[in-house]
Design a binder for these strands. Sequence first.
DNA 1: AACTGGCGCGAAATCCTTTTCGGACCCTAG
DNA 2: CTAGGGTCCGAAAAGGATTTCGCGCCAGTT
Lengths: 353, 353
Amino acid sequence: MSVNEETGSAVTLSDVARLAGVSIATASKAMNNRHDVAEATRQRVLAAAERLSFTPNQLARSLLSGRSGTVGLLTSDLEGRFVLPILMGAEDALGAGQINVFLCDARGDTIREQHHLRALLNRRVDGIIVVGRQTDPRPSLGHEVPVPVVYAYAPSDDPTDVSFAPDDVAGGRLAVEHLLSGGRRRIGHVSGDRTYAAARDRVTGAGQAFAAAGLEPVEEVLFGEWSEHWGRDGATMLLERHPDLDAIVCGSDQIARGVQDALRDQGRVVPDDVAVVGYDNWEVLATNARPQLTTIDPNLQRLGRAAARAVFDAIDGQPAEPGAHRLPVRLVLRGSTTPRPGPALAGGRLGSA
Amino acid sequence: MSVNEETGSAVTLSDVARLAGVSIATASKAMNNRHDVAEATRQRVLAAAERLSFTPNQLARSLLSGRSGTVGLLTSDLEGRFVLPILMGAEDALGAGQINVFLCDARGDTIREQHHLRALLNRRVDGIIVVGRQTDPRPSLGHEVPVPVVYAYAPSDDPTDVSFAPDDVAGGRLAVEHLLSGGRRRIGHVSGDRTYAAARDRVTGAGQAFAAAGLEPVEEVLFGEWSEHWGRDGATMLLERHPDLDAIVCGSDQIARGVQDALRDQGRVVPDDVAVVGYDNWEVLATNARPQLTTIDPNLQRLGRAAARAVFDAIDGQPAEPGAHRLPVRLVLRGSTTPRPGPALAGGRLGSA
DNA sequence: AACTGGCGCGAAATCCTTTTCGGACCCTAG
DNA sequence: CTAGGGTCCGAAAAGGATTTCGCGCCAGTT
């Protein structure tokens, strides 16, 4: 299949043409449904192509057209949990447009990133999506790049670049609004690492919700690290100082899991005594928690799709509005905030194997 | 940069040649360090290339050489947690060899997989790595594919294909051997979904270890699902029937987390009363457990590298031995089996942002 | 002075496909 | 019978880099 049985090399259009008894030009036109070829001839060519299982060489095609039909996906850290859904969304959107994706992982190393960028440009990618691992702004690739560039998750620090990031401020607001609407009034806040924009933005949003309701959290936000361990410690501290708390907003699902553990250790029942809201909607964690975790879903796959569509459109000459576009997040209701758990809303997929 | 300022299009070798006052052929030779060009001329060409920031068009190069310097990475499910480290390992190994990676996600859909395969071949990839989401054998792509194919994680069902998978049997053995060497004798086993080869293989290995020691588990292996929830249920059942248990082998880290929770609920102390061993070394889960989880690390990144090297060598005409190569796994010691936890061996990276 | 050898360089072919433009052919109408 | 128009097909160029082969020139030898 797709190999010339006589020469052993790949089947080319001229093989097809010879078999069909026409010129290469005619064969090409027949294959591409151009109209200046007789129907009988076209059929002969198609039959020949079928028999040889000919597939056109995209390299030659791209060389001629100046378009490779490929996009570079430049991640700063593949390991990052947030990169994957974005990648999926992008791959999804681009795959549907018959575009293939070059994946490059720079490991958070600028040198490597430059190297990969060069390699992508040598391969004549039609566009580039830069996927960061944090929502903190990252250095721009600059405007010397001859193809459209779109930043996902980590926005570019250059406001004239096109970036997409989740709206963490809205997410923080949403979380607190949900607790308030459930009648909670003595709310604590255990966040993550304060050097992360993600932590600060979510806290900002939470603050807006408090202010809008004319309320305040039980004390200053506790910043720490993005781990279950810190969640346990933070919650323990909070409970000690405010035994009457009735809710805890968490900077991440991991933290929330730790918080839930600490509450259980202290004999508090979630959500009856204390409600808990997480962030990220990391299904494996959220749906296996006791009770399942209400959380904010940043909708990363959609973010990836949006970024892909933006490069796509830019390639087609329709560049997106410059700036950091903040994409909406959503609240996922589960048992950790609703008194009667009922069946889980977002059915989690099983994880292992 | 890398764009001709007069024509606006990309800089080509002929631009460089013109600026250096030589022919295209000479420019090419100068750039590629061929020896039949005078040193002075070479310098002139290099200077010209530098000034225009010329980069050779890989498409043209590939078309001529018949090698694209790219490899297709065909995953059946990007969402799968196991795909990512393999991907990283492969990207790592190939990137070092100046090879770029086309990423395709087939979503477990055979039609889509065929479609992507065709697209990859049209782009003239030099090789293909097929990454599965489970260790169960998967259908072969067949031998009609004109480039080397290597299967990672999910081996091909055709034994003449080259496959790499973790040695789950050895992993199961390792887990039980570790418990036995720690003096545990009344050991329960909570595994995952029995339709998964991963579950069965690990159980097989565990059985070998028991047999070798002339012992038996407290009862038949409990199969269930790959979730914390099942881990809790399974452990609860075990404890009820065998209150004197002193260890539990788990089919995955998720299950182990559930098992730990159930033990805690029942007032058992890990590892003093009951030791727990997980599987997967999923850092976020294992290092945040209380106590941190001893587990089997399948070393997936290394598996990805091995697969990449195998395609790499096959492209160079050194095909690997056919068959399903089982790569070694390793035991990671943490607090859930060792009485005095001490500092964790594998420092976990923080997870959220 | 003529010839040889070697070094440096350039013309042209090659990879494969697409597209333009011109040519061949047939049919019809004048 | 011929001019004209339409239909179908093919030659050739283009796209960019590599490579082979041959040519020209200079130095050295007889």
